[in-house]
């Protein structure tokens, strides 16, 4: 189990972890969805959140993004409390979100979908008119479909577009919600490779919710959830088959 010490009101953004969550409780109406969740995402590391369907993983990510607001608890991003910030402000602080179901804007072209990803830059960077070459190096398939409507792409292509769109905003933390769900195996490997490459070249933190074991093992650290609470955590190297059996297998 994790324990967190009461943290000072202000932390040095240089030394503070990327994300620090303490005592988070979330309710849908009267049902208690997240119970006292605490977790830490260190800088430059990949953290994976595992658990069966319906344990609250996606709800957790939505709380980090600001789509949902917790009833109690604290979410810090680089030491700053972000509980009261709306999603767009959090995005501009540097949280890139790739939601479940991808949520590509359907009637915008692929190019427009990518350009709109730069909205998250805010005052942190300068938006450009053309999509930089790095994006095509990560996802070559996008280059050939720039003028297609986002909604006309296949599931795998949409997933790649959604990740590329998040990268366009040069996030400090990339939040991925089941990026391999419902996608054919060859593309899963592409996506996995791309995410690894992104971490290697940019040094950003990643929070991943994933069921695909091979991908899970790429993470540095894991948290396992059950019934809305964190029940185990540790380095991924210690993620034994027993633990997987207990928290992931159906």
């Amino acid at each position: 189990m994790t324990t967190t010490l009461p943290s000072p009101a202000l932390q040095d953004p240089m030394t503070a972890p990327m994300v620090e969550i303490s005592g988070l409780n979330f309710y849908y109406g009267e049902s208690h969805i997240l119970r006292d969740v605490s977790m830490t995402i260190p800088k430059g590391q990949m953290v994976c959140l595992i658990g069966r369907n319906g344990v609250g993983k996606t709800t957790m990510l939505k709380n980090i993004m600001g789509v949902l607001r917790p009833r109690t608890g604290e979410i810090r991003f680089e030491g700053q409390v972000v509980n009261n910030l709306p999603p767009d402000r959090r995005a501009r602080l540097g949280i890139g979100y790739v939601p479940q179901g991808r949520e590509v804007i359907p009637r915008l072209t692929v190019r427009e979908n990518l350009i709109i990803g730069q909205e998250a830059l805010g005052s942190r960077g300068k938006a450009v008119k053309e999509v930089p070459e790095e994006i095509y190096e990560l996802f070559p398939v996008l280059k050939t479909m720039l003028d297609r409507m986002g909604g006309d792409l296949s599931g795998g292509q949409q997933q790649q577009l959604a990740i590329a769109r998040a990268i366009m905003g040069q996030p400090k933390l990339l939040v991925l919600d089941e990026p391999t769900e419902g996608i054919q195996p060859s593309i899963i490997l592409d996506i996995e490779a791309a995410v690894k490459k992104i971490i290697k070249t940019t040094g950003i933190s990643v929070l991943l919710v994933e069921q695909h074991l091979h991908f899970v093992r790429q993470a540095d650290y894991y948290y396992a959830m059950q019934r809305g609470g964190i029940v185990a955590n540790g380095p991924t190297s210690e993620l034994t088959n027993d633990i997987i059996q207990e928290f992931l297998a159906v």
Binding site: V67, P87, D88, R92, L108, I116, L121
Partner: peptide
């Protein structure tokens, strides 16, 4: 087209 996702992309 998608208010929720647009907000998550940083659009005010």
């Amino acid at each position: 087209q998608n208010r929720g996702m647009s907000a998550c992309l940083g659009i005010p």
